[in-house]
Amino acid sequence: MPQRLEPDLVERRDFLGLAGIWAAAVAILGSVLGMLRLPKPSVLPETGSRIRIGRPDEFPSGTTRAYPEHQVLVLSNPNGVAAISMECTHLGCVVAKTETGFSCPCHGSAFNADGEVVTGPAPRTLRWLEVGQTVDGRLIVDAKREVSPGTYLKV
């Protein structure tokens, strides 16, 4: 019976053998994990996310203008200028502008004019994007920077 004070001794050969096997196992596992680091990119191949959209006076109150190549809709009202991403928050299809808001062709999500989900599987409001100004006053939209819905730039 193995006792706490007199434990079963591991044979020296067994110990060395087990140590060797475990060392090899840890080395192999470590190298596999290290190799898996390679497919995870540290730099993503992307073009710049800032879109120049023009001078503020090109966006009088009531304007809506779509930029399909960037999947961005710029709208202007008395609150100011705002940009909404047209990438569906469900599975990334491009939503279409409708009279009441937006609708997604892929799985039927519908959004109101502020991008809030009305129906369908989309889990969240369409992303509102940051609208900024360059030093000479031109408007730029940053497609990578999300702001809270209802954020307008006063110009």
Binding site: P39, P41, P45, E46
Partner: peptide, 12 residues
């Protein structure tokens, strides 16, 4: 990211 190697479907 592991699947696409980017944030959108492209060459990667």
């Amino acid at each position: 990211e592991l699947l696409l190697g980017a944030s959108t479907v492209g060459q990667d």
